[in-house]
Design a binder for these strands. Structure first.
Length: 215
DNA sequence: ACATTAAGTGATT
DNA sequence: AATCACTTAATGT
C-alpha cells in the first residue's frame, strides 16, 4: 500500500512532503510492544495498516484496555504526553501485524501552526478518543460488565475482520480487569441466548450477535 | 495414560 | 461482581 496516497486523503501536499522527509516507517508483528509503560515518547505514531492496543497497566501488572487504534488514526494519549514532554502513562502493543508511521515529536509545535490539516487531524483524534473514553467510563461507573463485554467482542471482530475470536476467557478477563469466572458466566449466558458459540480458546459470534448493541 | 491448562458451576460474601 | 473450591473437558507429551 502506498503510504503517500493514503495520507493524501487527509493531509495537504506540503505537509506530506514534510512527513516524507522526517517520518519513519516501521513495521511490527503481532504482540510486539511499541511503547512500554513509563517509557519517554519521542515519536507520534500514525497507524497505516493493522491495529494497535492501548492499555493502562498498574504496579501489579494488572491491565485495563483503553482503546484500539485503527488505520489512519493516531494515539490521543501520545499527544498528551509529548505536549508536556512526559513519560508514557500507557502501554501500546501490536494487536495484529502493523505498519506505523513515526513522526518525531520535535515537529509537533511547528506543524500545529503551519498546517491546518495537521491541526485538525490532532483535534479529531483527541475528540474521537475523548468521546469513546466517556462511553467506557459510563460503562465502568454503572458496572455494566455484560455490555462492556459485548462491546469488546464487537471491536475485536471488527479489527480482526472475523467473527471467530481467538481468545481464552482468561485473556478477556485480564483486558477488562475482571476475573475469568465472571467472563465465563457472561459468555455462557450469551451462548444460551444463541448469540455466540463457545469453544476452547475460541468464540464464534453468530449473526444474531450483531443485533445486540446500544451504541 | 497422565499432566496441564481452559472452561463450567454452586456456594459464599 | 468477586472469590473459592471443585468438576469437567480439551490438549499436549
Amino acid at each position: 500500500m502506498n503510504v503517500n496516497e493514503f495520507l493524501g486523503n487527509i493531509f495537504e501536499i506540503n505537509l506530506i512532503k514534510d512527513i516524507e522527509a522526517h517520518g519513519k516507517l516501521m513495521e511490527c508483528s503481532v504482540g510486539e510492544s511499541l511503547i512500554k509503560n513509563g517509557q519517554t515518547i519521542r515519536h507520534i505514531p500514525i497507524i497505516i495498516e493493522g491495529a494497535v492496543k492501548v492499555s493502562r497497566v498498574d504496579e501489579e501488572g494488572q491491565e485495563l484496555l483503553l482503546y484500539y487504534v485503527n488505520p489512519m488514526e493516531s494515539c490521543a494519549m501520545t499527544f498528551n504526553c509529548c505536549m508536556s514532554r512526559q513519560q508514557s502513562e500507557i502501554s501500546v502493543i501490536a494487536e495484529t501485524d502493523v505498519k506505523v508511521l513515526l513522526i518525531p515529536i520535535a515537529f509537533m509545535d511547528e506543524w500545529m501552526i503551519k498546517y491546518h490539516t495537521w491541526r485538525s487531524f490532532v483535534m479529531r483524534t483527541i475528540k474521537f478518543r475523548f468521546d469513546e473514553m466517556l462511553h467506557t467510563i459510563d460503562q465502568v461507573a454503572f458496572q455494566k460488565l455484560d455490555e462492556r463485554l459485548i462491546f469488546y467482542l464487537k471491536e475485536k471482530s471488527k479489527t480482526t475482520h472475523s467473527t471467530l475470536i481467538n481468545l481464552s476467557h482468561q485473556q478477556i478477563a485480564d483486558e477488562l480487569a475482571t476475573s475469568r469466572v465472571v467472563i465465563s458466566r457472561l459468555l455462557k449466558k450469551l451462548e444460551n441466548e444463541q448469540k455466540i458459540l463457545l469453544y476452547r480458546n475460541q468464540i464464534k459470534l453468530l449473526k444474531t450477535f450483531d443485533v445486540l448493541t446500544k451504541r
